[in-house]
């Protein structure tokens, strides 16, 4: 699965609704990416800023941090699916996680 569980985009012509959906998906990915950047910055980067380069420890930490974040994303998605995500989100869950 891709981050949003949309591995295979259906083929077809361009229509406005599809563009809209793509933009929405892009927004979502940007949102997730920004959260990832912030979380891993908090976890891995010392706030003293003695130098401008990433040191070895920070670099390794970032790599692991991104991996774990993806794993957490997957676990949360699976958990939401098994719970049906409550009444309100149920329909949405179907479509968003149908391909995971």
């Amino acid at each position: 699965m891709s981050f949003l569980g949309r591995g295979n985009t259906p083929a077809g012509g361009v229509n406005p609704e599809r563009v809209e959906m793509a933009l929405q998906e892009l927004d979502m990915i940007t949102d997730v990416f920004n959260k990832l950047v912030t979380s891993c910055h908090t976890k891995c980067i010392s706030a003293r800023y003695a130098e401008g380069d990433l040191n070895k420890g920070e670099s390794v930490c970032i790599d692991r941090c991104v991996s774990k974040f993806f794993e957490v994303n997957k676990k949360v998605g699976e958990k939401l699916q098994t719970m049906g995500a409550g009444a309100a989100g149920a329909g949405a869950t179907q479509s968003a996680f149908g391909q995971m």
Binding site: F33, V37, C40, H41, C44, D53, L54, S59, I62, V66
Partner: peptide, 14 residues
């Protein structure tokens, strides 16, 4: 400087 390098690395792993 560090933030941009951090973002780049996160982006590559992502």
């Amino acid at each position: 400087d560090k933030f941009l390098k951090h973002s780049e690395r996160v982006g590559a792993r992502f």
